[in-house]
Amino acid sequence: MSTVTPQQLIAAQQSSLETLFGFANQAFAGFEKLVALNLQVGKANLAESQQILAKAVAVKDPSELIALSASLSQPAAEKVAAYGRQVHEIVSGVQAELSSAATSQFQQAQKDAQGFIESLAKNAPAGSEGAVAAWNSAFSAANATYESASKAAKQFVATVSAGA
């Protein structure tokens, strides 16, 4: 019967660590984008506030101040909406990258598990066909469950994104 070698365990651990750090790097890249966006928005708001304050100080009568206030509400609402869209794009992009990476990692794990089961079946002692068949059945059921959950999750994300 075939057994797992220390080299195979080391390779599996290295692969898992690479995957973990890949996910962490993708998350940090998204965080960096959010920080950059917030810095950009903060700088723009500071400059705009300075201009608005200069205009407000230069106002000579209350009607000008009311007109200035009214002229600011529409652009402010548009800026908030644009900011929300940009945040959504960044978060959606990171989510899509992580989802894609997780899917490919899972598919590789499926292939590895299938290879292990096939190796087990080839090297199994006589009379163990029932156990091997049970492993195959459990593996197939797990794959079907994953596929069903994955489709439902993708459908849910698409529905939520369409509503946003």
Rank of each mutant, 00 (worst) to 15 (best):
E18T: 13
S137Q: 15
L65M: 09
Q8G: 08
S63L: 02
V132A: 08
A134V: 03
I66E: 14
K111G: 01
F156P: 00
L46Y: 02
Q8I: 03
F31A: 14
A67Y: 07
A134H: 07
F31Q: 14
F28L: 14
Q107F: 04
E78D: 14
G163I: 12
Q50E: 10
G127W: 14
A81D: 08
M1P: 06
K111R: 13
E78M: 11
L65E: 00
V94A: 05
Q155K: 11
A12V: 03
A67I: 05
V59D: 01
Q7M: 09
S73V: 08
S128E: 11
G93D: 14
T103A: 03
V59M: 10
A77T: 10
A134L: 08
E89L: 03
F139S: 12
A124P: 11
S16V: 07
A149Y: 09
T5V: 01
L46C: 01
A153C: 06
S99N: 15
A121T: 14
S73Y: 00
A133S: 14
F31T: 13
Q107C: 00
T103Y: 03
Y146G: 02
V4M: 06
A12P: 03
T5C: 01
K111L: 10
A101G: 12
S92N: 13
T159P: 01
A142T: 07
L68H: 01
A54D: 09
S73L: 05
Q13T: 12
T5G: 01
F23W: 10
F31E: 12
T103S: 04
V4Y: 00
I52Q: 01
A76K: 15
A36N: 15
A77W: 04
A76H: 10
S150C: 03
Q155I: 00
Q95F: 15
V57R: 07
A27H: 10
A144P: 04
P125F: 02
S137M: 11
A102N: 11
Q40I: 00
V160P: 08
S150L: 07
V41R: 15
F139E: 06
A77Y: 06
S63G: 00
S99I: 05
G22Y: 00
A58K: 03
Q155A: 13
P75Y: 08
N123R: 05
K79Y: 07
R85P: 02
K79Q: 15
E32G: 15
L17P: 01
N38M: 12
N25G: 14
V4S: 02
S140H: 06
A27E: 04
A131G: 05
P125N: 06
N123Y: 05
A27K: 14
S148D: 10
R85L: 10
E147T: 12
V132Y: 09
T3I: 10
A133N: 12
E129N: 15
S150H: 13
E78N: 11
S119A: 11
L39F: 06
P125D: 09
G42I: 08
Q114D: 05
N123S: 13
N136W: 07
D61T: 12
I66S: 08
F139A: 13
G30V: 10
A76E: 05
S49G: 15
G127A: 10
A109D: 14
V80T: 11
